[in-house]
Structure formats: structure tokens, C-alpha cells
């Protein structure tokens, strides 16, 4: 064995070890985050804070899943919110009408989302850029219109009223606010961990290749349509989970959950937080919800304030907050490297 071959042979397990290490690191960070979040109720009795974190969980999952499409694959969806609404309505309806245990309704909702997302995605992912964006928007409006017009099932413009039954399952009572809070945090952390795994897997790099140059990707043997459809469906599942959390939080589902403005908020969150880092959308979610909660308290013209904030990030920084922070740290590191003797 030559020196080069020996070096290569030694490096093979090193690559595997590095991959394992990053996976364990992510797992540890997720565990730590969950422990911190789960222990908040012990130190802060504020119901508003817990509510805020529950909403962050719902919108964080939704926005991060949108980033799998926008940031990782280059597919700008204007209709991703339809799956948020689908999750809320699917879960709410199943719980109201069947009374099955929560996990069963949860899985059933995800199955329904998979079927719907596959059917819609099979049509949409054939299209590129603005055509993809607008056809997804059209499907969102279709679903929203269906919710409004099929009043006997969905409650029409009044939404699903009367609350959602939440039978206790394995000691978890989702009618209890703290239980609901911890369940939401668990779903958020598990969801983020799974999405992180997708982003860092070989499939995640396939998505990056498609984003950069879909034509070239097909000339190295990648079935671009299938890869796009797969991520479209996976992203829909996480958005749907966000919708389920929201349905549990408000104990119902409303047409606004499936309206195009939800997709707009998702895009806004991604612009705020940034799409080049995995946690950008999560940071954007916290920012948007904080802005929403504070600005609406201070003025009725909150739309103007949010518009100015968007302009600041889009025109001023030309990137999201996390993009900016990461770039700033990279520049400082490079600068320090250059100054070092």
C-alpha cells in the first residue's frame, strides 16, 4: 500500500466519524434546547410567554419547512401556507368527528397531507420560478375557497368551532396548558432535528445542486422532478405539523390559517431571519412574532411598521439577520487571520 493509499484508507473512517460527530452535536443541541424550553414554566409563570413559545413552535416549523424549499432547493412557494391550514383543519376535523387518540389523529393528518401534497406537488414541481410560485398560490386559494364554501364540513368563514377534543393519552393531557406547551416544544425540536438531518444528508446536497443548477444536476444522473417532489411533500409535512400545533393552541381552525397571507408571512419570516443558515427562519419567526405582538400593542398601523422593517432588511441589509450575523463573524475571523503573524 502506498503512502497516498494508506492516507486515503485512514481518511475514510475519518469522514464517517466527522459525520457522526456533527449528528451527535445536533442531537445534543436539540436536547439542550428542549430542556431549556421545557423548564421555562418552572421559572416563569407567565402564560403569555408560554403562548408565545407555542406560536413560535407552530410558525417556526412552518417557516423552516418553507426554507427547505426556498433556501435549499430554490423553489419559491407562494402557497406553502395551504399545508399549514390543511394540518389545522385535518387534525381539528378528525378530533372533532372521530374522537380518536391525539397521536392517531396526528398521523392521519400527516397521511392526508402526504396525499394532497403529492397530488399538488406532482403538478407544481414541473414548473419553474414564477410559474411554480403562482401555481402554488393558485392551489392555496383553491383550498381556501373550498374551506369557505364547504361550510357543512369546515364551518365556512366561522371556522371549526366548538373546540377540539383532546383525550388524555399516556398521561399527556393537551387541555393542560403546560402539557400543551411541552408537547409543542417537543414537536418543534424533533421537527427541527429532522429538517436539519434532511439538510445535511446526501439528499440535502442534491437539493443544493438543484438550486444552483438543475439542468446540470440532471446531467449527473439526478431525477430533478422526483427530488423536488420529495422535498415538496416533506416540507408540507412539517408545515402541517405547525398547523396541528396551531389547531391545538386555539382549539379550532380558521380560514385565515389557509389564506395566502400565511404563505406571505412565511416568506417574510425567511427574509427577516435569512435563508442561508438553517436557524435563520426560526430567528425570523421570533422576530416577526415579537414585532407583531409589540407593534400591534403600540399602534394600529402595524402594517406600515412591518413594511418598513421588510424594506430595512431587503434594501438596507440585502439579507436576513442570521445571514448578516454569520457574514459579520466570518469577516471578523478572516480579518483576525490576516492580522495574525
Amino acid at each position: 500500500m502506498t503512502e497516498l493509499q494508506a492516507g486515503q484508507a485512514a481518511a475514510v473512517p475519518r469522514i464517517e466519524t466527522q459525520s457522526q460527530r456533527t449528528r451527535y452535536r445536533d442531537l445534543l443541541i436539540a436536547l439542550a434546547a428542549f430542556v431549556v424550553l421545557a423548564s421555562l414554566p418552572m421559572f416563569f409563570g407567565s402564560k403569555a410567554l408560554l403562548d408565545f413559545v407555542i406560536r413560535c413552535s407552530a410558525f417556526g416549523l412552518f417557516a423552516t419547512s418553507l426554507n427547505l424549499l426556498v433556501g435549499y432547493t430554490g423553489m419559491i412557494s407562494f402557497g406553502h401556507g395551504m399545508f399549514f391550514g390543511l394540518g389545522a383543519y385535518g387534525f381539528g376535523l378528525i378530533m372533532q368527528r372521530t374522537g380518536v387518540p391525539v397521536p392517531v389523529a396526528f398521523v392521519a393528518t400527516l397521511v392526508i397531507t402526504t396525499v394532497v401534497a403529492t397530488a399538488i406537488g406532482a403538478i407544481c414541481v414541473r414548473l419553474k420560478e414564477i410559474y411554480f410560485a403562482f401555481v402554488t398560490l393558485a392551489f392555496q386559494m383553491l383550498i381556501h375557497s373550498t374551506i369557505l364554501s364547504w361550510a357543512s364540513l369546515t364551518g365556512g368563514d366561522q371556522g371549526l368551532r366548538g373546540g377540539i377534543k383532546r383525550p388524555v393519552f399516556l398521561g399527556i393531557d393537551l387541555s393542560n396548558h403546560v402539557h400543551l406547551y411541552i408537547t409543542s416544544c417537543a414537536l418543534l425540536v424533533i421537527g427541527l432535528l429532522l429538517m436539519r438531518q434532511i439538510a445535511q444528508s446526501p439528499f440535502g446536497y442534491t437539493l443544493r445542486m438543484i438550486r444552483d443548477n438543475a439542468n446540470r444536476a440532471s446531467f449527473i444522473g439526478i431525477d430533478v422532478w422526483r427530488a423536488k417532489l420529495t422535498i415538496f411533500v416533506l416540507a408540507a409535512l412539517f408545515a402541517s405539523t405547525g398547523g396541528i400545533i396551531m389547531a391545538l393552541f386555539v382549539s379550532g381552525a380558521y380560514p385565515e390559517f389557509a389564506y395566502w397571507t400565511i404563505s406571505g408571512e412565511g416568506i417574510f419570516i425567511n427574509m427577516l431571519g435569512g435563508v442561508t443558515t438553517f436557524l435563520g427562519p426560526m430567528v425570523g419567526t421570533v422576530l416577526l412574532l415579537t414585532l407583531n405582538d409589540t407593534v400591534t400593542r403600540l399602534t394600529e398601523y402595524y402594517g406600515i411598521v412591518l413594511g418598513i422593517v421588510i424594506l430595512f432588511f431587503a434594501v438596507g441589509l440585502r439579507k436576513g439577520l442570521m445571514d448578516f450575523v454569520v457574514e459579520w463573524f466570518a469577516q471578523r475571523r478572516d480579518g483576525a487571520g490576516e492580522r495574525a503573524p
Binding site: 475514510v12 469522514i15 459525520s19 446526501p202 427530488a227
Partner: peptide, 12 residues
């Protein structure tokens, strides 16, 4: 292996 989801990139 372009669709592999359960492992981390790069594959040894």
C-alpha cells in the same frame, strides 16, 4: 444515493 436521508453528507 442522491436521495439518502438517514445518513450525513459526505458518505465515506
Amino acid at each position: 444515493r442522491a436521495g439518502v436521508l438517514h445518513r450525513r453528507f459526505p458518505l465515506a
